[in-house]
Design a protein around this nucleic acid. Structure first.
Lengths: 218, 218
DNA sequence: CGATCATTTGACTCCTATCAAAGAAAGTGG
DNA sequence: CCACTTTCTTTGATAGGAGTCAAATGATCG
């Protein structure tokens, strides 16, 4: 089912690099980040909004007990760091090495959104997409068994990364990342991979290169 | 820590009934819903956006296996039903009887957002808040034990409902709702309530009326 | 006051977290 | 380019926790 709605907020971006409003682009500056380097930290002041140009990033939080909770993965085109709070609640760090990020001063984005409806619309579309990602992820986490969680996660993530091209998927993230996203242990994630492979649901070329053979009914 | 930022998108609404932009209000019409009545259905066309005036609503989805996943609870002032998709992925139904909902035709809201920055800002603020609720909920779900999930959920929900007035909380939702929100069984939720009461973390006046005695470190 | 629904408790099995360690892959420095 | 180190992935053993089925109690509504 392909949607091609005649509405201001398009249902699906056709490419992973969406049209950035020109006036928004003009206030950006670019920065490169190393693997695992923080783009912004937990509880940091929210002065800047960001967009992934290339590479990927994880949004996460470290709990009092040291456990890490991952709430989103950002891919090229994704705007992030926006909130109406003064301080961030989560941190975001680069996953891939040499991740390229566009940085926008918050006050300038907000001022621009006031007068330029294309910018306002871009913020709205991007936050809607973030919302839908989070909801999908909640569905994934809400399944009962670990095997189902991993299976649904792979399908969800495949649809994000490879936009329905084929059924193979190159994972940019580790088993630990998946575990911290799903709220289960990394060992359990591994066992789920093994079980899914043995039951023919997925096949593995390498640990990070999977192919989805059978999709779950959602 | 009270935030009073001099920025266009205020950090916290001071009351549960925020200032609705006048031009947005002018395109609304009001509807009442009975308990458990659908405000919109899963896979329904997204033609209308909504706001809770009084009462409450749950956003949920019924899975292929019949299990229900709850992803958000809407309280007075919350705007909902917005997405950039053509069809809804979730359904929303009234929790409380006689829930009063303002309905906005989607095309008129979108047209208004194009020319009226106050409307665009309201959409942005509301979707940011929805995002933050979902993230908080993900933190809740991401804790290890069921007892922790329930405990964190009660704190999270208390902060939403009673806005820090005191430590008591009147739950508008059932154990089943909580279970479907946390992805655990209703029996386990009950046991968690019992255990939390016995260990003095909460006290119960009635099943739906709790008092939080000790907060978890987050 | 009876009927229905929500909440609570019990018993049992299966699943997953945890601790431990081995094997595979990838990055580093000579 | 190779040896070495580090990180990532996989597998094993065990104990505790949660799902499920079942039933009793408590609350609510007509």
């Amino acid at each position: 089912m392909v949607d091609a709605p005649a509405v201001p907020f398009p249902s699906q971006r056709l490419s992973r690099a969406p049209a950035e409003p020109p006036r928004l682009r003009s206030i950006a500056h670019l920065r490169r980040f190393r693997r695992d380097q923080d783009i912004y930290g937990q509880e940091e002041r929210n002065d800047t909004w960001y967009r992934v140009i290339s590479g990927s990033a994880r949004k996460y939080l470290t709990r009092a007990d040291g456990r890490r909770q991952l709430v989103d993965i950002y891919l090229p085109g994704d705007l992030f760091g926006f909130t109406s709070r003064v301080h961030h609640r989560f941190a975001v760090q680069a996953v891939a090495d040499q991740t390229l990020i566009a940085c926008y001063p918050r006050w300038r984005v907000e001022a621009l959104a006031e007068e330029d409806s294309a910018t306002a619309r871009e913020i709205i579309v991007q936050s809607f997409e973030a919302l839908e990602r989070l909801q999908e992820q909640m569905l994934v986490i809400g399944t009962v068994t670990a095997q189902e969680k991993v299976r649904h996660f792979l399908v969800y993530f495949h649809d994000r990364v490879s936009a329905g091209k084929d059924d193979s998927l190159a994972l940019p993230i580790s088993r630990y990342d998946i575990a911290d996203m799903l709220g289960i242990s990394a060992e359990t994630v591994c066992r789920a991979f093994t079980d899914l492979r043995e039951s023919g649901v997925i096949s593995l070329q390498g640990p990070r290169h999977i192919k989805i053979m059978r999709r779950p009914s959602r």
